[in-house]
Design a protein around this nucleic acid. Structure first.
Length: 483
RNA sequence: GCUCGUGUGGUGUAGCUAGGUCCAUCAUAGUGGGUUUUCAUCCCGCCGACCCGGGUUCGAAUCCCGGCACGAGCACCA
């Protein structure tokens, strides 16, 4: 039997044990801020597989922490919108963990009643000792009755945070210390730190931790494949132990490694939140931040982001990628439809002498004549040139004429191109004062200049000739996307 | 420290499960050239890699052992 093993694979690796039409995936961010560039990977990979296998994608808010990473109310609106923008369809289901508490309680009770969970009253410090020395803690042998009693104490306010947690009984001899009797639910002070969801607020004192909540919810939702960061590998192992207790089959799993971007480093939502609150940034869509909203506003397309992440695939390597890779994908997406616009920074006015027409018409896009023409007026034979371009005396105004420069005046020497003199861009008399915003080395710079008149609406991605691609963010205001 | 995971050109990525067709794929970056009245797009060329050391084998990027490096988990965060 012959195998076509040497065929080069393209796109994402095959989803293991997947049945077409019967695949359920999920993307589960903490709504403690809007989505970041890093979240895009989870969304793109999971949604691409969902599409490929006629499956479903669940967007799940893992909002069970009110103290360390408290949820941000606007994120519940913003994340679904950003997700839809990025992946091109609405997630099939949206699940909010904080609204599913009764389910988690049900399985916590089941765990206690069946004796594979217990209420542990050891301090964190003490349990750490037990874990490291592979010693069962004193609470491990609690009777079911005592556990139920203590569970009630956790819920009725007898206990405060730190007094007790519910643990999953695994095996204190487990090789991997992370798996030894791991914590499943704990108490939070929801008087002091209420949950921001309406109706949830201070309703519950006992909250599940990620490993428990996620495990139960994946089961309840019928998730077939979990694809997530490899930092959650131990989470899989913990959850698999829980699944064994319950007699459930754990989903197939795949992992990706850590990603950094050369220019940004990591992208922690919590850190961004602190920096914004400290006034270091203007808000979540400050163009310097690696949030999805900032990227979108800067002119990065959803398709470019998708192509970028699919190309990286789901390897477990920790990688650091340059932004130029993303920019290259973006250029491929937008170039063919980006109208050309002339923007002259450091403009100097130059008056032309010689045979000067009253206007010049230039193609909106050199490779697509159907996009029409743009008209550069030449009232008073006046043009604006970039002063840096005027270091040389003999230049050619792009799509117009050869000139010999002399200070603020210039002689038109030929309409036809006569020699190999450098070609520079320019604007005519029908130009406007405009502002170009450039983000460089973590700084926002504003460059004033003259821009040709155009009637492209806000949001249009265009190409500034000899500068780069940009997006119109306001009248006469362009943000440079990239070269 | 314990546990888990990963190591292919500058950066990513394919190939590794079932060893030969791999003097190793594709992309990006860099570089040279062509088209083009943009420093854009497009096209062509060049550059450049299997972490190290053993072993098995006629043959190893692929299997085994041992190093080394990097990352993550060991939270009453997600």
């Amino acid at each position: 039997m012959k195998r076509e093993k040497k065929e080069r694979r393209t796109g994402l690796p095959e989803l293991p044990n997947a049945v077409k039409g019967n695949v359920v995936l999920r993307f589960a961010p903490n709504p403690n801020g809007p989505l970041s560039f890093g979240h895009a990977r989870g969304l793109v990979i999971n949604s691409t597989y969902a599409k490929e296998w006629d499956g479903e994608l669940i967007l799940r808010f893992d909002d069970t922490d009110t103290t360390v990473k408290p949820p941000l109310p606007i994120a519940y609106q913003q994340i679904p919108q950003e997700a839809e923008w990025l992946i091109g369809f609405k997630p099939h289901r949206i699940v909010i963990a904080s609204e599913r508490m009764p389910h988690y309680y049900e399985y916590a009770m089941k765990m206690l009643n069946e004796g594979f969970g217990y209420v542990c009253r050891c301090s964190g410090e003490d349990f750490k000792q037990f874990r490291e020395s592979k010693t069962p803690c004193p609470c491990r042998d609690n009777s079911v009755e005592l556990n139920i009693h203590l569970w009630n104490n956790m819920n009725d306010g007898t206990f405060v945070p730190g007094d007790a947690v519910v643990r999953v009984k695994t095996d204190m001899e487990m090789k991997n210390p992370a798996l030894r009797d791991w914590p499943a639910l704990r108490i939070q002070d929801t008087q002091k730190n209420p949950h921001p969801r309406e109706g949830i607020g201070s309703k519950y004192k006992v909250w599940p931790l990620l490993d428990f909540q996620s495990a139960v919810e994946d089961y309840l939702q019928g998730v077939t494949h979990i694809i997530r960061g490899k930092d959650l590998m131990d989470s899989t192992r913990k959850q698999t132990l829980l699944y064994q207790h319950f007699g459930w089959k754990y989903p197939e799993t795949m992992y990706w490694g850590r990603v950094k971007v050369h220019e940004w480093g990591g992208f922690s939502t919590s850190q961004m939140r602190r920096d914004i609150e400290a006034g270091l940034f203007e808000g979540w869509n400050d163009p310097r931040l690696p949030t999805l909203s900032a990227l979108k506003e800067r002119g990065i397309t959803a398709q470019a982001l998708r192509n970028f992440w699919v190309e990286l695939g789901v390897t477990q390597k920790d990688i650091s990628v340059p932004l130029s890779t993303l920019y290259s994908h973006n250029t491929k997406e937008i170039d063919a439809s980006a109208p050309r616009v002339s923007f002259v920074k450091n403009p100097i006015q130059v008056s032309l002498s010689g045979e000067c027409p009253d206007h010049v018409s230039i193609a909106v896009h050199p490779n697509d004549k159907s996009m029409g023409l743009r008209k550069f007026e030449l009232n008073n034979n006046s043009v604006y040139l970039n002063s840096e371009d005027c270091q040389q005396n003999e230049v050619r105004l792009k799509d117009f004429c050869d000139i010999n420069l002399d200070g603020s005046s210039a002689q038109i020497t030929s309409i036809e191109r006569k020699d190999r003199r450098p070609i520079i861009h320019w604007v005519g008399s029908n130009c406007v004062d405009a502002e170009l915003i450039v983000v460089e080395n973590g700084e926002i710079m504003s460059i004033a200049g003259k821009m040709e008149n155009h009637q492209h609406p806000i949001g249009t991605m265009l190409q500034l000739e000899r500068i780069g691609y940009g997006i119109i963010v306001a009248e006469n205001k362009i943000v440079l996307t990239h070269d």
